[in-house]
Design a protein around this nucleic acid. Structure first.
Length: 459
RNA sequence: GGCCGAGUGGCAGAGUGGCCAUGCAGCGGAUUGCAAAUCCGUGUACGUCGGUUCGAUUCCGGCCUCGGCCUCCA
């Protein structure tokens, strides 16, 4: 089977063939680290983590880089407000981002380069662009001259007339062309800056990604990913810089863009304020449930986010873990994920379809009576879960975590369960039911099973 | 204004020219002392108006509505 990916550049699904199957390269635009990331920011991290897993299963070596933008006006503002160096801010939120995405089951990328570690590479790339006549210096700025790159606009599907007609930004007087963008800009003494041939300054946002890609992945990469809102201008500018700096070499062969999380149909965003941070959601729900919720829609579609979305994901995972709990003592036959799950993911990361297949395995597992069937299905379920980054915990750990975070007094519950058991043995069902009502009042649901009474926190 | 995307049952959300998504919720049944869990069954659907077709939710066109980008933005 071949892997099919939707390429924004061609607006079509295409079979994916790496330039070098022995070294597959992918890059995802990571966060600007000045604040807590919201759950919408988590979508590319989670979605392209699935892509990373899928590629890693197919190719011997996948190099996945996801950057940190650690120099930026917003970071400067935050540092100034707290009167600390920017590194204090960026170190803190880098760690938080890594911890938060880790809690969502996101595997660490192969590389997580930081912009500030690549200033010399950025300067070198800018010099190359200047030499080639693609950029110019003006009033201590260096700007990329967009008319020097005729293919500009191809990724986002807009021509120059569109861009000029739609321009909502006042054009700086030193720009030769309204569409020109900053590669390097001057810093004032109170702001972070680096010495350069054009004076003390700092890089523009777009050059960061291009320089880090060049440094770690090469002139041409296989897959470049990011949120839909980065298509223009960020990715368009990256293509312009990268292509011109490399003698016309293709910058990225495939471009993938994820859609947004929405609330009441509107984009979740900082400017609208309609957001939940990953950090606060993790206090209310397991990271795995948040991940399941994020993957429950196709990555290019919008996903309507609410407490209900999370609750449904949690309940669905409960069901899967309950099925696994029933076969906890059975050794899974080591197994590859079922063909149907792989086929769904290989069709442009159709995670909802893959999850429907997972649901089918859960049902089959619940129906199964023969041990051999259970072992086989358990292996399928865990292997499928591994591709999606879910169902890798021990069921006891999954349910145990829910108990731990609920604040329920486990000893008290156990005591009541024992009392109820005694009443049931005495056939005093009225008393048994009374005790169960007491247990229910604690927010606990109990299940009488062949192997004893189990309890869990009521949904 | 330009460019782009979307409208599916109570909710989330796949998909397809003719038959089933799936999960959550609901309803009925089995099971259970009663529950819970599980299994079985079940209802509710494809914005609107036309066109193509033996047949369209699925293809084509108009209309309506919503959203995204055009500025930092996942």
């Amino acid at each position: 089977m071949s892997l099919i990916l939707y390429n924004t550049l061609t607006r079509a699904k295409e079979p994916f063939t790496p330039a070098d199957p022995a070294r597959v390269t992918m890059y995802v635009c990571g966060p600007t680290v000045y604040n807590y990331a919201h759950i919408g920011n988590a979508r590319p991290a989670v979605v392209f983590d699935v892509l990373f897993r899928l590629l890693s299963a197919r190719y011997p070596k996948v190099i996945y880089a996801r950057n940190f933008t650690d120099v930026d006006d917003k970071i400067n503002a935050a540092a100034k407000a707290q009167n600390v160096p920017i590194k204090t801010i960026t170190d803190k939120f880098k760690a938080i981002y890594q911890a938060d995405t880790g809690a969502l089951g996101v595997m660490p990328p192969t590389l997580e380069p930081c912009a500030t570690d690549h200033i010399p590479q950025m300067i070198a790339m800018i010099e190359t662009l200047l030499k080639g006549g693609y950029a110019y210096e003006a009033e201590s700025h260096v700007l990329f001259n967009v008319p020097s790159f005729p293919a500009y606009g191809r990724l986002s599907g807009r021509d120059r007339d569109d861009m000029i007609a739609g321009a909502r930004v006042e054009v700086a007087p030193y720009k030769k062309d309204p569409a020109d963008f900053v590669l390097w800009k001057p810093s004032t003494p109170d702001l972070p800056g680096w010495d350069s041939p054009w004076g003390r300054g700092r890089p523009g946002w777009h050059i960061e990604c291009s320089a880090m890609i060049e440094a770690h992945l090469g002139a041409t990469i296989d897959i470049h990913c990011g949120g839909h809102d980065l298509t223009f201008p960020h990715h368009e500018n990256e293509i312009a810089q990268g292509t011109c700096a490399h003698g016309g070499a293709t910058y990225a062969r495939v471009w993938m863009h994820n859609g947004f999380l929405t609330m009441d149909k509107e984009k979740m965003s900082k400017s609208l304020g309609n957001l939940f941070t990953i950090h606060e959601l993790l206090e209310k729900a397991p990271g795995e449930a948040l991940r399941w919720a994020i993957l429950s829609a196709h990555y290019r579609q919008p996903l309507e986010w609410s407490d209900e979305t999370i609750a449904q994901a949690k309940t669905t995972l409960d069901r899967a873990y309950r099925a696994l709990e029933q076969v906890a003592d059975i050794t899974a036959i080591p197994n590859v994920a079922p063909t149907a799950v792989i086929a769904a993911l290989e069709d442009d990361l159709n995670t909802p379809k893959a999850m429907a297949e997972v649901a089918a395995i859960v049902k089959a597992l619940n129906q199964a009576t023969a041990t051999a069937d259970k072992a086989r299905l358990k292996g399928q379920l865990v292997a499928a879960g591994n591709l999606l980054g879910v169902l890798q915990q021990q069921p006891a750990a999954w349910f145990g975590a829910a108990k731990d975070s609920s604040g329920v007094d486990a000893a008290e519950v156990e005591r009541l369960i024992a009392a109820r058991l005694a009443a049931r043995k005495a056939k005093d069902f009225k008393e048994a039911d009374r005790i169960r009502d007491m247990i229910a009042a604690l927010g606990v649901t109990i299940e009488d099973r062949a192997d004893g009474t189990k309890w869990r926190v009521t949904e």
